[in-house]
Amino acid sequence: MARSDFGDSVAGAARPVIDFVRSRADPRKKEIRRRRRTRRKASFFGAASGSTAVGTAAVAVASAPEWLVVTGGGAAAVFAVPAVLAVSRYRRMRGVPLPPAKPRKRALPPWGSAARAPMMRLTGAEQSLHHLLAMVARSGAIATGDLDDTARIASGAAESLDQVAVDIVEMERAAQGSPRAAEHLATSIDAAVEELDQGVDQFDELVAAAAQLTSPGVSGPDTRRDALLFASDRLRGFAYALDELRP
C-alpha cells in the first residue's frame, strides 16, 4: 500500500473520533447545549413550583392544619424563584444570535489530483466565511435569519463541490487503471475540474460580500446586505445546477 493511501486510511478511521471532538468544541453546538440545559431547568422548577402550589391549595380546601399550608406555600416559592431566574436567563440567551456553525472538516483529494488545489481553496474560503459571519453576527448589522440562510447556503454549496471533487478522484483512479478508459475520461475530468473551479470562485464572491460588512464603506449597510444576499442566491443557484447536472 502506498504511503499516501495508508495515510488516507488512517485519517478515514480516525475521522469519526475527530468529528466528535470537534462537535463538542464547536461554539455553536456548545451554546445550543447550554440553552437546552437552561430550558430544561426552567421547565423542571416551573413544574415543581406549579405542582406544589396546586397541592397547597388542595390541603387548604380540605381544612388542613395551618402549618402544613404554610410549609406547602413556602416550598412553592422556593421552586418558583429558580424557575423565574431560569426563564429570564433563557430569554436573554434567545436574544443573542447563535455563533455560526463551523465548516465540516473535509478530507482533501490526494496529491496529484486535479481536484486538490480547488478543494484547498474551498477549505480556506469556508474558514474565512465562518470568521466573517461570526463578526457580523456580533455586530448585529445583519438579521440573524439572513446570516443563518447564508451559512446554510454556503454549507450546501460546499457539500455539492465536495461531491464533484469525489467524482474527479474516482475518474482519475479509473483512468489510471485503463489506458483506453483514460481516453474517454480525460474530457469528463477536465469539464468537472472547470465546474469545481467555477464553484469555488462563486464561493469566494460570497466571502468577499461578507467581508464588506465588517467595515464602513461608501455604500450603506442595506446595499452591502443586498450584496451578501445576492451572492448567496447566486451560489445557491450554481450549487442547484451542479447537483442537477451530476450523473
Score class of each variant (00 low, 15 high):
52 T>V: 04
146 D>K: 10
90 Y>E: 11
91 R>I: 12
239 A>N: 05
183 E>G: 06
118 P>A: 15
130 H>F: 15
96 V>M: 02
150 T>L: 13
64 A>C: 04
191 A>Y: 04
164 V>N: 08
119 M>D: 06
128 S>A: 15
228 L>M: 14
67 W>V: 11
69 V>G: 05
22 R>N: 13
208 A>H: 11
25 A>G: 07
130 H>C: 06
76 A>G: 12
163 Q>N: 10
147 L>C: 01
234 R>L: 08
200 V>A: 05
164 V>L: 11
108 L>W: 02
52 T>I: 05
63 S>H: 04
236 R>S: 13
153 I>F: 06
168 I>P: 00
104 R>I: 15
229 L>N: 07
77 A>E: 03
216 P>N: 09
69 V>Y: 02
216 P>E: 15
237 G>M: 03
47 A>I: 15
111 W>G: 12
150 T>C: 11
181 A>E: 14
165 A>P: 01
1 M>A: 10
90 Y>R: 12
209 A>M: 04
151 A>P: 02
106 R>Q: 07
36 R>A: 11
165 A>W: 00
105 K>Q: 13
51 S>M: 12
188 S>R: 14
28 R>Y: 06
80 A>R: 09
167 D>F: 00
17 V>M: 15
136 V>H: 01
38 T>V: 14
113 S>L: 08
197 D>E: 13
102 K>L: 11
55 G>Q: 05
235 L>E: 03
101 A>D: 06
207 V>W: 13
207 V>H: 00
2 A>F: 05
110 P>G: 08
158 A>L: 02
151 A>K: 00
181 A>V: 07
125 A>Q: 07
204 D>S: 14
203 F>H: 06
115 A>H: 02
223 T>P: 01
96 V>G: 07
172 E>P: 01
238 F>Q: 03
122 L>Y: 02
43 S>M: 15
107 A>R: 14
39 R>H: 09
169 V>W: 04
132 L>T: 10
140 G>Q: 10
233 D>F: 06
98 L>W: 14
208 A>R: 14
110 P>Y: 12
95 G>Q: 13
224 R>A: 02
126 E>H: 01
28 R>V: 02
226 D>R: 14
180 R>G: 01
158 A>S: 15
230 F>V: 13
198 Q>C: 05
163 Q>C: 10
186 A>S: 13
157 A>I: 04
50 G>M: 06
169 V>S: 05
234 R>H: 08
35 R>T: 04
79 F>W: 12
60 A>P: 00
219 S>D: 15
70 V>A: 10
231 A>Y: 06
223 T>W: 00
